[in-house]
């Protein structure tokens, strides 16, 4: 069975890859392109660890087939910092001890960035509901919520 040849843009770079129909975007990112910052926690869309942005929309990359991504723009955790300059969310996660083991962190950061793009001034409740698709077992979420609120304030220039 021949593979599909797909051309996408990942974190601003044009990327070609070959994939089988059954391979998810998560499989492609991790196994074919070695972009392992995107994590697999469940492969069924229930934990959010594999969150990426697809044409500006937050998705679980385990629920997208590689073959569906032709011509699309994909943004992963690897593209979040600007060179040496961490994204404010990344910096605030570090400052607020918003990560422990860190396995859910890339997905949470990608989800939080998407949340703030739509709602730059969220309430605590909006952050909690906005991040409800991302499981974290270590932190109890509190420091994550605080980090997102603090980053939002900084990004608004408040």
């Amino acid at each position: 069975m021949s593979k599909h040849h797909i051309t996408t843009t990942i974190n601003g770079d044009e990327v070609d890859f070959l994939c089988e129909t059954s391979q998810t975007l998560l499989d492609v990112l991790r196994d074919e392109l070695h972009l392992t910052g995107t994590k697999e926690g469940c492969a069924t869309g229930d934990c959010g660890a594999c969150s990426v942005s697809l044409d500006g929309v937050l998705v679980c990359s385990c629920l997208v087939l590689g073959v569906e991504t032709g011509g699309k723009k994909i943004e992963t955790i690897e593209g979040m910092a600007d060179g040496d300059e961490l994204h404010p969310l990344q910096r605030k996660f570090v400052e607020h001890v918003a990560l422990q083991c860190g396995i859910c962190t890339p997905g949470l950061l990608v989800a939080a960035r998407s949340l703030l793009a739509k709602n730059p001034d969220p309430t605590e409740e909006e952050v909690r509901f906005g991040l409800a698709g991302n499981l974290c077992r270590c932190t109890g979420y509190q420091n994550i919520v605080n980090a997102v609120l603090d980053a939002a304030a900084e990004m608004r220039g408040a």
Binding site: G45, C60, L115
Partner: peptide
């Protein structure tokens, strides 16, 4: 339906 991520698809 699902999470925000799920509703994205």
């Amino acid at each position: 339906i699902g999470s925000l991520q799920v509703r994205g698809r």
